[in-house]
Amino acid sequence: MGFGQFLAAPEIKLKIVTYRDVFQNTAQESSRFGEEYEKLSAVVKLDSKDISRLSIKEDDTVIVKNGFGKVVVKAQKSGYEEEHSGIAYMVNGPWSNALVPDETGGKGVPKFKDFDVTVQGAKGEKVTGIREIF
């Protein structure tokens, strides 16, 4: 037994920005419950510094949660040249929608594009399945 097994995975606060993706949309048209759609949708794209802060590697699973929901998704590098530590990206879909605040500020429309979450490594956990979200 190593000392490290008793330490909690690092947890960081991030702002999620959602976006549309033509490849994910095409996979959804083919099969909303298919493997390809999940592979392209159950992802959070992170800045390299945030990946380091979480002590994870690309394609590791992470828990993304807030007061409105919790999902386990794959972590990937965003691929942006400019640093954006503290900001993560998720494609519009069931996994990001599970985290969207239900507060509308009196406007009647939830805040889909920009909301706060905490993220931590989820070593060994499976990605949340789409049927678990619905």
Rank of each mutant, 00 (worst) to 15 (best):
A98M: 12
Q28R: 10
K49T: 11
E81R: 08
F23D: 10
K126W: 07
K45G: 01
Y80D: 01
V73L: 04
I130S: 10
K111E: 06
V71M: 11
F3Q: 14
S41F: 01
G121A: 15
L54P: 00
N66I: 04
H84E: 01
T26D: 13
I133Y: 12
T26R: 13
E125I: 07
V109L: 10
Y80R: 12
F68P: 05
E35L: 06
P110V: 05
P101H: 07
V43F: 00
D102N: 09
T18W: 05
K123E: 14
V43R: 09
K123T: 13
A42P: 07
E11Q: 15
N66M: 03
G105R: 10
R20C: 06
N97G: 08
G34M: 07
K111R: 14
K113V: 03
D21Q: 04
V127E: 11
H84I: 00
V109K: 11
K13L: 03
I133V: 12
V119A: 08
T26Q: 14
G108P: 06
Q120C: 13
S55N: 14
K107N: 14
A42H: 02
G93P: 07
A9W: 08
T18S: 08
I12E: 01
T104I: 02
K70V: 06
V17C: 06
T118A: 11
Q28E: 09
G86P: 00
F115L: 06
K70Q: 11
E35A: 05
G34H: 04
F115V: 05
S55L: 11
G108T: 06
A8I: 09
G67R: 09
K57R: 15
G67N: 13
Y89I: 00
G105L: 13
A27N: 04
L99D: 02
E125G: 05
E38D: 07
K111I: 03
Q24M: 05
T18G: 03
F112N: 07
P94G: 06
Q24T: 00
